[in-house]
């Protein structure tokens, strides 16, 4: 029972529920299907990025370059499609962006798994390089005349309509992409030896090596996978926003990592759950979109997120420290 109470997941879930209660009290219109579908849509890109970031944290590394990968993959895909084949169907566009993302992730992988360099330093470097390369050599203009099928994809809905109460709602197919990523990553992490090896490396690299886990190959895979997820998130972002903006996304990486850490992943590696990560994302999206509803001006957004991180990660850490002090 205490184990459940001290988990980050529980804490974050409680905060989310409290937030919703306060929001509903101050604005009865908050708790509607419309708000829910808005929030879900806003969680898609952040959610996919967060799952990638979580995988890296579990493996004992940290990646700050994934937003640059996402925006590069999206923008390069868009310009390529416009130049070569404007009528390119959406699934080709998506595949291309995922491939570019995986390729850029492989560059991280080469430095980290191949040369054994520290993950933060490598990804700080590639964050700058990827973004600089994009703006200098590919382009720095916002493109709103997207390939038609990219726009069409964002209009494809799983369900849309109006409730009897008159609330409008829409669930885009992009949501299915998030669901797909969740299922795929869950299977990877819990049902394959590769996934278990990622946990093992995060727990102890030396031990992993000693029992015969191929540490380099596992690490390389992690960065390629994260790159591919970033490519997917990037193209979804462009498609749903109906604009290819080379200045977007970069800067979000710390919010994403914050969401993952809020959800219980530890920076030292070896720990992290998909449920926790999604709850962390939900909380951050809620704060970003609905802070105004509970009467806090949106200028306080980043302060609130910061406070939540301090509380959400500090409290369990403090409890663990006290427990250790009592035991020792």
């Amino acid at each position: 029972m205490t184990a459940l109470l001290t988990r980050n997941e529980t804490l974050v879930a409680v905060v989310i529920v409290l937030f919703c209660i306060v929001a509903t009290i101050s604005d009865p219109n908050f708790f509607t299907v419309t708000t829910l579908s808005d929030l879900l849509r806003a969680s898609i890109v952040l959610g996919i990025l967060a799952i990638g970031a979580m995988l890296v944290l579990i493996s004992g590394g940290i990646d700050v370059s994934f937003t640059a990968i996402a925006v590069s993959a999206m923008y390069i895909t868009t310009t390529t499609a416009l130049a070569l084949w404007p009528e390119m169907p959406w699934y080709f566009i998506f595949s291309l962006s995922i491939l570019i993302g995986a390729g850029l992730g492989a560059i991280n992988g080469v430095f980290i798994a191949g040369f054994g360099l520290p993950t933060l330093i490598v990804t700080l470097g590639t964050l700058s390089v990827f973004r600089g390369f994009l703006l200098t050599f590919v382009g720095s203009e916002r493109i709103s005349a997207l390939p038609p099928d990219m726009r069409n994809f964002s209009r494809m809905m799983i369900a849309r309509g109006t409730t009897e109460g008159g609330d409008f709602y829409a669930l885009p197919w992009a949501l299915a992409a998030l669901a797909f990523v969740i299922v795929l990553t869950a299977i990877l992490l819990h049902k394959t030896m590769l996934g278990r090896s990622i946990f093992a490396i995060g727990g102890s690299v030396e031990s992993a090596r000693r029992i015969g886990i191929n540490v380099r190959r596992t690490q390389f895979f992690v960065y390629v996978y994260v790159g591919a997820l970033a490519g997917l998130a990037g193209i979804l972002h462009g498609s749903m926003g109906r604009m290819a903006d080379p200045f977007s996304l970069v800067g979000l990486e710390l919010s994403v990592i914050a969401a993952v850490v809020l959800g219980g992943a530890r920076l030292i590696g070896g720990y992290g759950t998909i449920t926790g990560t999604l709850l962390g994302v939900a909380l951050i999206v809620l704060v970003q979109n609905s802070l105004i509803v509970i009467g806090i001006p949106s200028t306080w957004q980043s302060v609130t997120i910061g406070a939540l991180i301090l509380l959400g990660t500090g409290l369990p850490a403090y409890q663990a420290k006290r427990a250790a002090a009592r035991a020792g």
């Binding site: 030896m193 278990r196 946990f199 093992a200 995060g202 727990g203 102890s204 030396e206 031990s207 992993a208 000693r210 029992i211 015969g212 590696g269 070896g270 720990y271």
Partner: peptide, 17 residues
């Protein structure tokens, strides 16, 4: 050379798997 973050069962079975 064990894994602090994994379960007892997994620590025992990992290498043989």
């Amino acid at each position: 050379s064990l894994f602090p973050n994994l379960s007892v069962a997994e620590n025992i079975a990992f290498a043989s798997e």
